[in-house]
Design a protein around this nucleic acid. Structure first.
Lengths: 322, 322
DNA sequence: GTGAAAGCGCTAACAA
DNA sequence: TTGTTAGCGCTTTCAC
């Protein structure tokens, strides 16, 4: 900036004025400055501006895995809002590891991001309290924080969706409906189990429930165990997109009614099409980002908690008879 | 830092030494400083450090669309390398819009990212030259820059892969093989057409080729047109993952041999399984990031150009007889 | 082993 | 309309 100033024969502050489109610069002077800027290939050093201004115009996003279609859709939606607000997005994957998440958040905060959007892993975010008090707002998406931490949240209707899917299978005549879920310490997995359970009512049988991190091996084993029961399941409710896909593979073409939580690409092209309860990851990301920018523009109302609806998409697999 | 210094009764510089693990601080003093740091909840302002140090420890990634599985896999791999090097990743989607890409790159450079990784859109990256000369290295992934711009690149063997897929269909007895590609101004689309063409040799018939941005409507129309020919195609080679999926929908269960460029989730679960030529987006991202960090650690050898191999995965659809 | 002073590139406040 | 000065929070240099 100093170089531009001397090249244009003006003071440094005048260059600053031109760069920032501040009023009160003679057009001729401005033109001279711009010419010098072009000639020298100058571009303002944002690091310095940020240091002065205090705001970095940067938002940090921590999700479980950028490569997962659910989270990448969420991330893209966040990105669009963030860029639209003239900010930039730092993104990182926690790999569902609380320690890594914490480290990432710490790094983001050291960089003085203006705000955080996160899909939390683990159940202790007390380390965030300091940052929140220091004025860095955070929005939790997909999963809420532990009680006591007061932040905006965007969740989907996990229990309602699970109930919807389960009732759908019940309505098609099934009484023995298995639930393949996930590690119950994950909020969404627990809520979906809850919804399944209340839909099943007195038909609930814990032998038809598997709650652990789904791997091809575990899903296969759980299925086999259930199929060997006296009264084996005639239908399957899978608790998230990953489980659904893993279960489809494990079924190896065995014809069995199936409904899954989360939509996925090509669900319609399988034979039969896979009936799902779909949520809207892009909507979730967009709303999370919008909530964040509300805070950034000074909104200090009590924390907001948005619950997004889900919808059932019947495609064939969930309508198979027992 | 000033506050910590006075709280600990030392000079600012001593705090700086402790924070940076510099040698030559008395353990007792260091302990006192650390205690003050904890008590005050101090964390170093990276913006200020960056301003002083000149390096931001930040890498910028510009891809077409974060939500596309190919690019999100690439992005995740880049992220892992970047975080592993102690840096952070700014990511943004160009939406295949050269103007937006340019704006994003400009913004990244104004933030003084240490380096850029990009999947280029458009064919004019002359605006990068200035940044390259200023010492900000860039690596192009998936597509090369226009001739004359000298940067490291990581591409896959587009022509070879297309040839492989086409020869596979030929080997299974097909003579009328259609190619559904993409806008030929996209580098990968052009190279794949080239590979298809050389495999077809004298069997090449331009009426069996469609090169435009694939939409459900366009793919359906192109297919219908070809199927009405005197000698309609008995097999289909689709030029990328998006086209493959769109074509599968357009075929509506019509039984036709098909091989596609790019692997995709669930390709194995369709009936028949979809034969593909698979590339490795994660490997591409990882290598791009590694090339970048080589440059950042001072490597100024002539630009490197990596070509990744592809592999054919027969799953049934490509082995159907004419 | 510790500290004082200068300065990274910019903007806010004030002066001319 | 333009310029001068101070200072954002840190690191580097050099002196104690």
């Amino acid at each position: 900036m100093k170089d531009v100033a001397s090249a244009a024969g003006v003071a440094l502050k005048t260059v600053s004025r031109v760069v920032n489109d501040e009023p009160g610069v003679h057009p001729a002077t401005a033109a001279r400055v711009r010419e010098a800027i072009d000639r020298l290939g100058y571009s303002r050093n944002e690091s310095a501006r940020v240091l002065r201004a205090g705001r970095t115009s940067t938002v940090g996003l921590v999700i479980e895995d950028l490569a997962d279609p659910f989270y990448s859709a969420l991330g893209r939606a966040v990105e669009d809002v963030v860029i639209g607000e003239g900010c930039l997005l730092l993104s990182a994957s926690s790999s569902e590891d609380p320690a890594r998440e914490r480290e990432l958040v710490r790094t983001f905060c050291a960089r003085r991001v203006d705000g955080l959007i996160m899909v939390p892993a683990g159940h202790d975010h007390s380390y965030l309290r300091q940052e929140l008090e220091a004025g860095t707002p955070a929005v939790f998406a997909d999963r809420p924080p532990e009680p006591g931490l007061d932040v905006d949240t965007v969740l989907c209707d996990n229990a309602g969706g699970a109930e919807l899917a389960t009732r759908h299978l019940l309505a098609h005549g099934h009484r023995r409906i298995a639930f393949l879920g996930d590690d119950p310490s994950i909020f969404t997995a627990a809520r979906r189990l809850h919804g399944y359970r209340s839909a099943m009512g007195h038909l609930y049988d814990e032998r038809l429930v598997a709650m652990r991190t789904p791997t091809p091996g575990s899903v296969r084993a759980d299925l086999e165990r259930m199929l060997l029961l006296d009264r084996p399941p005639t239908a399957l409710f899978t608790g998230n997109g990953r489980v659904t896909v893993t279960a489809l593979r494990a079924l190896e073409g065995r014809r069995m009614a199936l409904a899954g939580f989360d939509d996925f690409e090509l669900a319609d092209l399988l034979a039969p099409g896979v009936t799902v309860v779909a949520q809207d990851p892009a909507g979730m990301g967009r709303i999370a980002a919008e909530l964040l920018f509300r805070r950034l523009s000074g909104d200090d109302a009590p924390s907001r908690h948005v619950t997004l609806p889900v919808r059932l998409i019947p495609r064939g697999s969930g309508e198979l008879p027992p």
